[in-house]
Amino acid sequence: MSTLQACLLLSSLLFSIGLAVAIARSSAILVLMGIELMLNAASMNFIAFWRFGPNPEAATGVLFALFAIAVAAAEAAVGLALVIALYRHQRTIRLQEATRLKG
């Protein structure tokens, strides 16, 4: 197994853990964290392909990872604001109980 394959294996395992977190946990905050983990796993792939790819001068993988970090920060801010708004309206952040769209 080449080093690139090891990196890809690592990121796919991380992606699966993130997916499992997003599905198995009932707290909205941890679901968001699971989604963040999946995003991070994707960025790891970009970096791995940049590291072992044919054309590292273009630095496309690096730039993509940077943009992914910026967008993930935006996602976290909005998602957690939504969690707080949800809690304010329905006094819960368990996703099973948050079944109404009306506040």
């Binding site: 910026a70 935006a74 996602e75 909005v78 604001a81 707080i84």
Partner: peptide
């Protein structure tokens, strides 16, 4: 995107009707 997300986050978390 970051600016809009920041504004949206502030509006969502700070506003949103009267405190129950």
């Amino acid at each position: 995107i970051l600016t809009v997300a920041l504004l949206g986050g502030v509006v969502l978390a700070a506003g949103g009707g009267p405190e129950k």
